[in-house]
Amino acid sequence: MSDRITRTAHRHVDVDGVRVFYRESLPDRADAPVLLLLHGFPSASHQFRRLIDVLGSHYRLIAPDLPGFGHTETPDDFAFSFDRLAEVTDGFVQRLGLDRFVMYVFDYGAPTGFRLAERHPEWIAGLVVQNGNAYEEGLSELARSMLTQHPDNPDAENTLRDLLTLATTRGQYETGVAEPELIAPDGWILDQYFLDKPERQQAQLALLFDYHSNIERYDRWQAWLRKHTPPTLITWGSNDPFFPEPGGRAYLRDLPDAELHLFDTGHFALEDHLSQIAPLIADFLDRTWR
C-alpha cells in the first residue's frame, strides 16, 4: 500500500444508451495493476470509496455503478436482468479499453462478474471474492426465501418490497457486526436515497425476481473456476445473514489454492474491516499481477 493521497476521477461513459457512472483512481504508475470493483445490493460504487482512497495511488481501481444503482442512468425501456447487467459491464470494460484485470466480486457483483468471466476468461487475471456467492451452501434460509420468489405468487412483490426499506438497508450494514459504532450511517442513507426513487423500485424488483437465474448457473461457474483456476483471494464476513460463511469455504472445493480469510462481521465487510482487508488485496495484487 501507499501513503500517497489518492486522486479519484468521477466519470460517465455511454454503453448502448446506458450512461454508466464510474469512479477511477489515478495511480502514480501508468502500468499499475487494474482492479475492477463490482458492487452489490443495495449499494453502488460509493461502497468502495474508502478502499479506493487507501489503494488507489498505487493501483488502478475502477468501480462502475451497475444499471439500476447509484448514478448510472438507463433508458425507460431498459429490461433489468442479470444478463443485461453483465452485457452493460462487458460494454463498459471494452469502452475503457481494458483487456486484463483482477476482478472484485461482491453480492450482485458476483453473478455479474461471473457472467463476464464466462464471456472473456482471458480478461481475468485473478479474483477477489467478498461475500459474493456461487454455491448452494452459501445461501441462508433467509436468502432462499427472498431470492427464489416467483412473480406469479400474489404475495411475492410485497415480500420483496420489504428488502427495499430503510430498516432492511440499515440492517444489511449492521447485522452480524461486532462493533456497530464502526459503521458510518452514510452508506445506508445514500443507498436508500436511490432505492426510494420510483423507477428504481421497479428495477430492483425485476432483479430480485431474476435472481433464480444466478442459482441456476452455479454449476457453470464452478466448472469455470475448475477449468481456469484463477488466483483467488476470499475475504468473507462470516455473520452475513444472506451469504453465510459456508459460501466462502465452498470455493476451496474448486480452487484449493485460494486464500481464505474470514472476518467477524456481516455483509459489508469493508465497512469495519478495511484496515485488515486492504493490505490483503494489495499483497494479492502485487503477487498476482504479471
Rank of each mutant, 00 (worst) to 15 (best):
G132P: 05
V93M: 07
G126T: 04
M103F: 10
R144F: 00
R84F: 00
E141Y: 02
A134K: 01
A117F: 13
D107S: 07
A110N: 14
R161K: 15
A156C: 06
V128A: 07
L116W: 14
R115K: 12
E157I: 00
R119F: 09
T112Y: 12
L127G: 01
L164M: 13
E137M: 11
L96V: 03
S140N: 05
F92P: 01
V105K: 08
E137Q: 15
N158E: 10
Y173S: 06
A110C: 15
E122G: 12
M146T: 04
P111Q: 13
R161A: 07
L127K: 01
W123H: 08
T159S: 03
A125D: 12
A110Q: 15
A143G: 09
A86L: 11
A125N: 08
W123M: 05
P121R: 06
A143L: 01
P111N: 13
T169V: 13
V93L: 04
L147R: 00
L163M: 15
A167N: 12
H120A: 11
P111H: 13
V129L: 14
L98T: 04
N153K: 05
R95V: 09
G113C: 05
A86C: 11
V129G: 06
L142Q: 07
P121L: 03
L116E: 12
L139G: 02
E174V: 12
G91Q: 12
Q172S: 14
N153E: 12
H150E: 13
Y108N: 07
V102T: 10
A156S: 14
T169N: 14
G138A: 11
G171M: 03
I124F: 08
R95C: 07
D162F: 10
Y108S: 02
Q130A: 13
A125Q: 11
T169R: 00
A143I: 06
R115D: 08
L96G: 04
Q149C: 13
Y108T: 06
L127P: 01
T112K: 11
D90V: 03
A134G: 12
R144L: 11
R115L: 11
L139V: 01
G171P: 02
G97S: 05
R170F: 04
G138V: 05
